[in-house]
């Protein structure tokens, strides 16, 4: 992975640092206005977030309410209190698929966001320390990177689930999060290495600024662009990882409405009822597509090279 800094960033360093915050927001907004693809991505992400937050109000019926088993899409079922409309049909337990997809968005997005947040904070801290101090922290990080070199994220996460000994949301977050730590740690480490000897960092050290302050106030703000891009592009990977783990039956507990589990349950009935697995799959696809489109736009906006972040 290249550790070199792009020429534009190098120029940006020369420009007054105070402007950084403004430019960031401006650049973000500029991208959205200019690039239709990332605007669309942002809108889709926002709507999924809103749907997830207001799931109980948006969902037409209770996701735990049982109706007729495997009703095809666009059907009605009679209930005690009137009719229920099944836009996407019902599943093998008789649950309304549309409502379960809406509630599934909660778990999928929550797990993905918390996972990336976890990996981001630990990874950034480790990367800062490794790049700034070097020494044993750096060696330990590099050995961990070596270790991860031998594993697909999914297998590593499955191994962590095996060690943790039980299923559940927290376990998934830790399992996938640990597998993502090195992505952030390596990124921050390489940024720190390229910034450590810059004049303003040397100056900060010379006037006796504490190490922690130099790392957080001087170095980290300069890595912000790559970090934002990395976060945006890691979220869809986290969504896919959670869905894969749930699909394998190693994710959240069975009967929780999540997209991965719905696919897992639906897969057994593909010959009779395709809608059981196809619709949750599309939900995954649309939200991942949106994050990828948004992240792609950001990458162009911040001029982060494709190879610089995300190499899985």
């Amino acid at each position: 992975m290249s550790t070199s800094q792009s020429p534009i960033d190098a120029k940006a360093d020369e420009i007054d640092d105070v402007e950084e915050h403004l430019t960031l927001r401006k650049r973000l907004w500029g991208t959205l206005k200019r690039d239709k693809k990332s605007m669309l991505g942002a809108i889709v992400i926002l709507s999924f977030l809103l749907v997830a937050i207001f799931a109980p109000y948006v969902a037409p019926v209770d996701p735990e309410q049982e109706y007729g088993i495997m009703e095809p899409p666009n059907t009605h079922s009679e209930t005690a209190d009137g009719e229920a409309y099944h836009l996407l049909g019902t599943d093998s337990y008789g649950y309304d698929i549309f409502s379960r997809i809406i509630f599934g968005a909660r778990i999928s997005l929550l797990v993905a966001l918390v996972t990336v947040l976890f990996a981001f904070t630990t990874g950034t801290a480790i990367g800062l320390a490794a790049g700034y101090y070097g020494g044993w922290i750096d060696s330990l990080l590099m050995r961990y990177v070596d270790f991860q070199w031998a594993f697909p994220t999914l297998i590593l996460a499955a191994g962590i689930i095996a060690v943790s000994g039980s299923l559940g949301v927290i376990n998934v977050i830790i399992a996938v999060g640990v597998a993502f730590i090195d992505d952030f740690a390596r990124l921050v480490r390489s940024e720190v290495l390229s910034l450590r000897e810059k004049e303003y960092v040397v100056a900060a050290r010379a006037i006796g600024m504490s190490d922690r302050r130099i790392m957080i106030k001087e170095i980290l703000p300069n890595a912000v662009a790559s970090l934002i891009v990395q976060v945006t592009l890691m979220i869809p990977i986290a969504i896919l990882a959670e869905a894969s783990l749930s699909f394998l039956g190693l994710g959240v507990r069975p009967t929780t409405p999540t997209w991965g589990l719905m696919l897992n349950e639906g897969r057994q009935f593909i010959t009779q009822a395709w809608w059981l697995s196809i619709f949750p799959g599309f939900a995954i696809m649309i939200v991942v597509l949106a994050f990828n489109a948004f992240g792609d736009g950001l990458r162009d906006a911040f001029d982060v090279k494709e190879g610089e972040v995300l190499d899985r």
Partner: peptide, 11 residues
């Protein structure tokens, strides 16, 4: 890039 392999498999 946006579909997990197992979903492509189901499709």
């Amino acid at each position: 890039l946006s579909m997990p392999a197992f979903f492509i498999g189901i499709l």
